Each structure stands twice: as C-alpha cells, then as structure tokens.
Simulated assay, not measured.
Amino acid sequence: MMTTLASATPRIAFIAGLALGVINPNIFEDRARRGLSAAKTWMVRHNRALGVAVFFGFGTLFALRGLLALV
C-alpha cells in the first residue's frame, strides 16, 4: 500500500484527496473556508473589472463566431 502511494500519479493523488475530503470533510474545512473567504473578498473588490472582462469575452466570442459564419 505504501509503495503504491509513494509512486502515485497526480490523478491517483487527486482521487485520494477527493475521497478523503468526501469521507471526512473536517480535514479540509478550515483551509477551504479561508481560501473561499479570500476568493469572495477578491471577487467583491474586483466586481466591476470581472463583469467587464466577462462581457468583453462573450462579446468577442459571439462577434468572431458571427464573422466566421459569414465566411
């Protein structure tokens, strides 16, 4: 078992971490709460810039798709 864990690929490590998080969410609770709180604070602080970026991104996507459909 330990040799399997020692030579684990990133996929196996991710699945093992996910399984541990599902089995016992208390393992990652504090860390997740701090990370999500920091992300929420950043997103609230940069709300306008994020909105503009999303609108420009979708506008560019739809404009390019429309132009390519004409060709």
Rank of each mutant, 00 (worst) to 15 (best):
M2N: 15
T3R: 10
T4I: 11
L5R: 09
A6Q: 13
A6C: 09
A6H: 14
A6W: 13
S7W: 01
A8S: 07
A8W: 00
A8R: 00
T9H: 00
T9I: 02
T9Q: 07
P10G: 01
P10N: 01
R11V: 12
R11Y: 13
I12M: 15
I12E: 15
A13K: 05
A13G: 03
A13S: 09
F14W: 10
F14C: 10
I15D: 07
I15Q: 09
I15K: 13
A16Q: 04
A16K: 08
G17R: 12
G17E: 04
A19F: 11
G21D: 03
G21L: 01
V22D: 01
V22N: 06
I23M: 12
I23G: 03
P25L: 02
N26P: 00
N26K: 04
N26Q: 11
I27D: 04
F28A: 09
F28R: 03
F28N: 08
E29N: 12
D30V: 04
R31D: 13
R31A: 13
R31L: 11
R31K: 14
A32W: 12
A32N: 05
R33E: 14
R34P: 07
G35P: 06
G35F: 14
G35S: 13
G35D: 15
L36P: 14
A38Y: 03
A38F: 10
A39S: 14
A39F: 15
A39P: 04
K40R: 08
T41S: 13
T41Y: 06
W42I: 01
V44A: 07
V44F: 11
V44K: 06
V44C: 05
V44E: 10
V44G: 03
H46T: 01
N47R: 13
L50D: 09
L50N: 05
L50R: 04
L50Q: 06
G51F: 04
G51V: 00
G51W: 06
V52T: 02
V52Y: 02
V54D: 05
F56H: 09
F56C: 13
F58S: 03
F58T: 04
F58R: 03
G59M: 00
T60C: 11
T60E: 09
L61S: 11
L61N: 10
F62N: 00
F62W: 02
A63I: 03
A63C: 03
A63W: 06
L64K: 08
G66A: 15
L67A: 10
L67D: 07
L68E: 14
L68G: 04
A69N: 05
A69V: 03
A69E: 09
L70G: 03
L70V: 11
